[in-house]
């Protein structure tokens, strides 16, 4: 029985001297959303791993910036880097996230990043 070979270096080879997420630039194709678009966060299943916070699920947000292209964290956690996606910086109003948020501070906001799979037009 020969020892199985695991390719542990492919990311190092790809990112050295370029950086991550810069090394995935140009791999995600055309972005589906643009700055200023109104979106809603999908509530996708996430049995194994996710970086989409529960508090954002179902909430409306506005696209503030297209930040970079990268495999989604949900894929990359399993070393699947085959289909990079656009990542968006999103701004939420706090009162859309937390129903009890005080009305006196209704201008307060929260910004976070999510990949394209989590977004739908609102």
């Amino acid at each position: 029985m020969s020892k199985p070979h695991y390719d542990r270096d492919h990311h190092v080879k790809k990112a050295t001297g370029i950086g991550d997420p810069q090394c995935f630039k140009g791999e995600a194709g055309a972005p589906k959303f643009k700055v200023g678009d109104k979106v809603k966060i999908k509530n996708l299943p996430d049995i194994f791993y996710t970086r989409c916070q529960m508090y954002t699920r179902g909430a409306p947000a506005v696209v503030a910036a297209l930040v970079y292209e990268s495999p989604a964290a949900e894929d990359e956690a399993w070393d699947n880097t085959e289909s990079p996606e656009w990542f968006y910086s999103l701004i939420f109003r706090q009162k859309d996230l937390w129903p009890e948020y005080p009305a006196a501070y209704e201008s307060d906001t929260l910004e976070t990043e999510l990949s394209e799979r989590w977004l739908e037009s609102a």
Binding site: C52, Y68, S89, A104, S107, L110, E111, T112, E113, L114
Partner: peptide, 15 residues
Amino acid sequence: PSDVEVRVEDSNQKS
């Protein structure tokens, strides 16, 4: 004060 917008930045991905 309430006329200052507080923006929480939740650093959850690669930025």
